[in-house]
């Protein structure tokens, strides 16, 4: 897998706006961002109301995912180009989610919505309707998703990469600083985890750093890239961004995203926590 198979730049995107087999999909934390302007022809995907089970904490099941994709007019053989705000956090989460359900050709738009806006590229408020399809999914894969027991078992035996900000890692903050801090879970991090914030993998405009710089970043922080790795953050979206870096850009085989992340781990009874403050 080469970088161009998983990541496209804005020029590539502009050149494929009218390609019938390329579907642009916007995924934002702020789901109203799409209404204020989006890439022409792009479909909106709501990470919360559409990708999450609305009763228990989990993803929608395969049949529901197939129904969602069919209703959005996405086919199994389409090339999906994901982009969004927050430096592509939620777009990367959706990328990982599409891979979980076996979509073959998914790519991220490098820099996402921010780079597109900073370049003053064309946006529209118009929604382009897409005829319904009959989408077929596979999976869900379990080789790229970590669950809580695996995380506990990974302490001291696998790479644990905590991609939150240093203040969240140390326990001084409980959530990213654009959200209120009052939370029910305990503060801190999983013992033996290395703190390598997602932001170190990207430039200010949200585009990913080169492969050599990325590899040096993790090795410089003492991560043995020959070992299995679990990435986590607070709810699994920033760690999906790092999963993308490790599994897709650096092509490392055994990397999982722990989407339960700190909101689950920090609420578990009896598990070890390290805290710096």
């Amino acid at each position: 897998m080469s970088r161009s198979d998983v990541l496209v730049d804005a020029d590539w995107a502009e050149a494929h706006l009218d390609d019938p087999k390329v579907v642009f999909v916007e995924v934002d934390e702020d789901v109203s961002a799409y209404d204020k302007g989006h890439i022409r022809g792009a479909v909106r995907l709501d990470w919360k109301s559409e990708l999450q089970d609305q009763v228990k904490r989990d993803f929608v099941d395969k049949a529901s995912f197939e129904g969602l994709m069919s209703a959005k007019g996405i086919s199994s053989d389409d090339t999906i180009v994901l982009y969004g705000g927050n430096n592509n956090w939620f777009a990367a989460y959706a990328y990982w989610y599409f891979k979980l359900y076996g979509h073959r050709d998914v790519r991220l738009l490098d820099g996402g919505r921010k780079k597109w806006e900073l370049d003053s590229r064309e946006q529209t408020e118009a929604v382009t309707p897409r005829p319904a399809t009959s989408y077929t999914a596979s999976g869900p894969r379990t080789d790229i998703r970590a669950f809580r027991d695996e995380v506990v078992a990974a302490i001291g035996t696998q790479n644990l990469v905590d991609v939150r900000s240093p203040d969240e890692f140390s326990g001084r903050l409980l959530a990213p600083a654009h959200l209120p801090q009052e939370q029910s879970q305990r503060a801190g991090h999983v013992p033996t985890a290395r703190n390598i914030p997602w932001s170190k993998t990207a430039a200010d405009d949200g585009t990913f750093r080169g492969d050599d710089a990325l590899r040096k970043l993790y090795e410089g922080e003492g991560v043995d890239l020959s070992r299995d790795t679990i990435a986590y953050c607070r709810i699994g979206e920033r760690s999906a961004h790092t999963w993308f870096v490790l599994h897709e850009l650096l092509d490392l085989p055994n990397v999982k995203n722990y989407d339960g992340s700190w909101t689950e781990y920090g609420s578990l009874v009896g598990v070890p926590i390290e805290k710096d403050v």
Binding site: S165, A177, H178, P180
Partner: peptide
């Protein structure tokens, strides 16, 4: 230390807010 902690987009009236320490 200059490390990224959060990012928001300013509103239609240019406003933003963070919850820090």
């Amino acid at each position: 230390s200059g490390e990224f902690t959060a990012e928001v987009v300013s509103s239609a009236s240019g406003q933003f807010r963070f919850f820090a320490r």
